Simulated assay, not measured.
Amino acid sequence: MNRAERIKVLRFGVSGLLATGLHAAVAMTLIMRAGTQPALANALAFACSTGISYLMNTFWSFSSFPALANVWRFATVSLGGLTLTALVAHATELAGGGPGLGIAMVVCVVPPVTFIAHRWWTYR
């Protein structure tokens, strides 16, 4: 992997960590301060963090510009990542792994898959 690709991967990772932190902060604020049900709070937090993730990844990670085509591709990959998260966690549970192992498996599988999808499809 060349230097430019390593920088994209690093920036993608930082963007993901920041978006995850935003998701947690929005969800917890809605639940604890506004009394929002956890499912709704997490859905709203997912929407917020996905929007911020799109902007960070578009401008910073992939040095691109917002466009209708990459908005829809980004949303598709994000929903695919959400689906893959559920599948990996469920498969880990079926295999007898606990929640911690499920999270570890998700962290090992989902970010590389979504990076590749964004690199070769969203921002082509």
Rank of each mutant, 00 (worst) to 15 (best):
M1E: 15
M1H: 13
M1S: 14
N2R: 06
N2D: 15
N2S: 14
N2E: 12
A4V: 15
A4L: 14
A4Y: 14
I7T: 10
V9K: 09
L10T: 11
L10N: 11
G13S: 04
G13P: 06
V14F: 05
L18P: 14
L18N: 06
T20L: 07
T20S: 12
L22A: 02
L22G: 02
L22I: 04
H23Y: 04
A24W: 14
V26W: 03
V26F: 08
V26C: 08
M28G: 07
M28L: 15
T29E: 05
T29R: 03
T29A: 07
L30C: 08
L30N: 03
M32W: 11
M32A: 13
A34C: 09
Q37T: 10
Q37C: 00
Q37S: 00
P38N: 02
L40H: 10
L40T: 09
L40R: 09
A41T: 02
N42L: 04
N42R: 09
A45M: 02
A45K: 01
A45V: 02
C48M: 03
S49W: 01
S49I: 04
T50K: 14
G51I: 07
Y54N: 10
L55Q: 11
L55N: 10
L55S: 08
M56W: 09
M56H: 02
N57P: 02
N57Q: 08
T58D: 00
F59W: 00
F59Y: 00
W60T: 03
W60N: 01
S61G: 07
F62D: 01
S64V: 01
L68F: 10
L68S: 06
A69M: 11
A69H: 07
N70R: 05
N70Y: 04
W72K: 01
W72S: 01
R73A: 11
R73F: 11
F74G: 14
A75M: 12
A75S: 13
S78N: 04
T83G: 14
T83N: 04
T83A: 12
L84T: 07
L84F: 12
L84R: 02
L84V: 05
L84D: 08
T85N: 05
T85E: 03
L87S: 11
L87H: 10
H90N: 11
T92C: 15
T92H: 08
E93I: 13
L94W: 14
L94G: 15
A95M: 09
G96T: 07
G96Y: 02
G97A: 10
G98V: 15
G98P: 13
G100W: 03
G102Q: 06
G102E: 03
G102V: 02
I103G: 08
A104H: 06
A104I: 02
M105K: 02
M105H: 12
V107L: 13
V107H: 04
C108V: 11
C108H: 08
C108R: 06
V109E: 09
P112D: 05
P112R: 13
P112G: 07
V113D: 10
F115D: 06
I116E: 00
I116S: 06
A117Q: 03
H118E: 01
R119V: 07
W120T: 00
W120M: 02
T122A: 01
T122H: 01
Y123C: 03
Y123G: 00
R124D: 00
R124S: 07
R124E: 00
